[in-house]
């Protein structure tokens, strides 16, 4: 008795409204790759790695939990400490220099100059090149036997010493020079877009007020560009944490382990040292670093939007 009734009820419902899961079906089909990527790869993969960082997996991932052993070992490994120090030094200097140089270049470009397109093309072309190419060129330029050091010495300053790639104390600065060469063009472009976004009337008003140009930049324009600075900062910073290719190409982490970085540590432990647990723990630390940078920013962005 109940069966026919339930069928007719279902049919009735279908006539009124086709199942809500079938509405917009094409759109849902088109979004399958996005949903899979977001849920399986990004969310699933991240959770998987974090989970396995608490195991003692070596050659193959195994679910035998050892608590925070891997993290304790990580933070007592000299190589990891060097990586972290390098990342901190490189990161802080890279942020300061790329923001400063990028902004200065953008401000110069904004002076209604001639050949603006030529200059922009020159400043930005390294950004089109890969880190591998960048690393190899600067490896050659900084080569102590033939590069800058040799050239300066041949000009008479025989005691001139600039050999960052073979001096473990300053090797990270050698990498910094190459990274700045590659990336400041991008910062310049972002800053220039920010400067061009400033209402021209603001500049006119400050001229009528008789405010010198440098003061207008510092007290009016830069504060107005705060969102551009923050966004640029987040982009540079999340790039810094990932730095890998450049180091591999320029120094292979050497001399010794002097220019090692977390991303290289992770790769080596996962694919060479057959110590997956260490690799997972180290990569989780990388994730944490990025989260510390991105979460407050995202919070501010979205919080700000809600208020606005």
């Amino acid at each position: 008795m109940t069966l026919p009734i339930s069928i007719s009820a279902a049919q009735g419902a279908q006539v009124k409204r086709p199942s809500r899961y079938l509405r917009n079906l094409n759109s849902k089909i088109a979004s399958i790759p996005m949903v899979l990527t977001a849920v399986v790869v990004f969310l699933g993969g991240t959770i998987w790695t974090i989970l396995y960082s608490f195991t003692n997996s070596r050659l193959l991932p195994r679910l035998s939990f050892v608590g925070i052993d891997q993290y304790e070992r990580l933070w007592s490994t000299a190589r990891w400490m060097v990586s972290i120090q390098n990342l901190a030094t490189y990161g802080i200097l890279s942020l300061i220099f790329s923001l400063t140089i990028g902004f200065l270049l953008a401000a110069l470009m904004d002076q209604k100059i001639r050949f603006e397109n030529t200059f922009r093309t020159i400043f930005l072309y390294p950004f089109a090149l890969s880190f591998i190419v960048t690393g190899l060129v600067w490896q050659w330029i900084l080569n102590p036997e033939f590069g800058v050091q040799a050239v300066v010495r041949s000009m008479g300053w025989t005691s001139f010493a600039f050999d960052p790639l073979y001096d473990s104390d300053i090797v990270i600065y050698g990498i910094l020079i190459a990274a700045l060469w590659q990336g400041t063009g991008l910062v310049m472009c972002l800053m220039l877009a920010g400067l061009r976004g400033i209402d021209e009337d603001i500049w006119k008003a400050s001229r009528v007020d008789g405010i010198p140009m440098w003061r207008t930049y510092i007290f009016i324009v830069i504060p107005m560009m705060r969102p551009v600075f923050v966004t640029t900062l987040v982009i540079i910073a999340s790039g810094i944490v990932r730095i890998y290719d450049l180091v591999v190409a320029q120094t292979s982490g050497g001399p010794g382990i002097a220019s090692d970085v977390p991303a290289k540590y992770v790769y080596d432990y996962m694919f060479f040292a057959q110590n997956l647990g260490q690799g997972f723990a180290a990569s989780t630390m990388m994730l944490l670093t990025v989260a510390i940078i991105v979460v407050p920013w995202a919070y501010l962005e979205f919080g700000g939007r809600k208020r606005g």
Binding site: T37, A38, V41, F42, L43, G44, G45, T46, W48, T49, I50, Y52, P61, S238, V241, R242, A263, V266, Y267, M270, L276, G279, F280, A282, S283, T284, M286, L287, V290, V294, A298
Partner: peptide, 13 residues
């Protein structure tokens, strides 16, 4: 958000 996650975290899975 996934775009900000370091690739190293997702490589092995």
């Amino acid at each position: 958000i996934g775009a900000f996650i370091p690739y190293q975290v997702m490589i092995y899975p």
